[in-house]
């Protein structure tokens, strides 16, 4: 405890409580979200708090939503079910000629240069290893960060449930642009995983094809792309963030 008598957030269990309560902001929030994704014990503590504090929510009032809400839910669930049956057109393809090491290196920042080197020499990857908790398990995590721009993305993939979870910070794009997530299989070409939010938590189910690509040793990367609502064939430079997936 510090001199001012404030219990410091050094106790991760209390930090988990602060995250569950929703009071954290800025870099504290980003750090806690990253911990939630890469530290199983911390994630469990957040769940503990959510369940305990959630009981308070039962005293909240209720309201009557419009009928259109249910119609919207049905339409979106229909769309989801339909999407599950559509094959990813890009899956399994090799890289287009445009994705060469020479073109990629020109004008890139450190993260992207590291990524390109990683692609060319995967056995001696200069990409910083993800800072992961030492809890054994079969989940995959990658921590992508750039101290200069304060952009960060922590990702966790649960192969059992086939879910991708992201904690995103500082990826604000210009009007008409959106952050897009890519997976680069070891020695392969980038394949889009679609647009992601600029900030906050995000999760979605992975298709079978996507899950097959998201394995230890593959690299995740983020670029800004035109917000067309569709996945792009090739990434637009610069690569904003890049990092390798590792098992925890």
């Amino acid at each position: 405890m510090a001199d001012d008598g404030i219990p410091q957030a050094e106790d991760p269990f209390l930090t988990a409580g602060e995250l569950a309560l929703g009071v954290l902001e800025g870099s504290d929030l980003a750090a806690a979200r990253r911990s939630q994704l890469v530290d199983a014990a911390f994630a469990e503590a957040v769940e503990w708090w959510e369940t305990r504090l959630g009981a308070m929510g039962e005293a909240a009032g209720s309201g009557v939503p419009s009928d259109t809400v249910w119609q919207g839910v049905e339409a979106r669930v229909d769309a989801l079910d339909g999407a599950d049956n559509v094959e990813l057109p890009m899956t399994g393809r090799r890289g287009p000629a445009g994705w060469s090491i020479v073109t990629a290196i020109v004008g890139l920042g450190a993260a992207a240069a590291a990524l390109v080197l990683f692609l060319s020499t995967p056995a001696t990857s200069p990409v910083a290893p993800p800072q992961i908790a030492s809890t054994p398990g079969d989940q995959l995590v990658a921590q992508l960060g750039d101290d200069e721009t304060n952009r960060s993305l922590a990702s966790r993939i649960d192969p059992d449930s086939g879910e991708l979870r992201l904690a995103i910070s500082g990826l604000q794009a210009d009007t008409g642009k959106t952050p897009e997530l890519w997976v680069i299989p070891a020695g392969g070409a980038p394949i889009s995983l679609g647009a992601i939010p600029e900030e906050g938590d995000f999760s979605r189910d992975l298709s079978t094809e996507e899950s097959a690509l998201l394995v230890a040793g593959a690299t995740l990367a983020v670029t800004f792309e035109d917000d067309t609502g569709e996945r792009h064939e090739t990434p637009t430079m610069p690569i904003l963030l890049a990092g390798a997936l590792a098992e925890v």
Binding site: P7, L14, E18, L21, V23
Partner: peptide
């Protein structure tokens, strides 16, 4: 808030 959470942790058996 932190003191409150610490109190709840103890009381709820966290």
């Amino acid at each position: 808030v932190r003191r409150g959470l610490a109190g709840l942790k103890g009381c709820l058996g966290g």
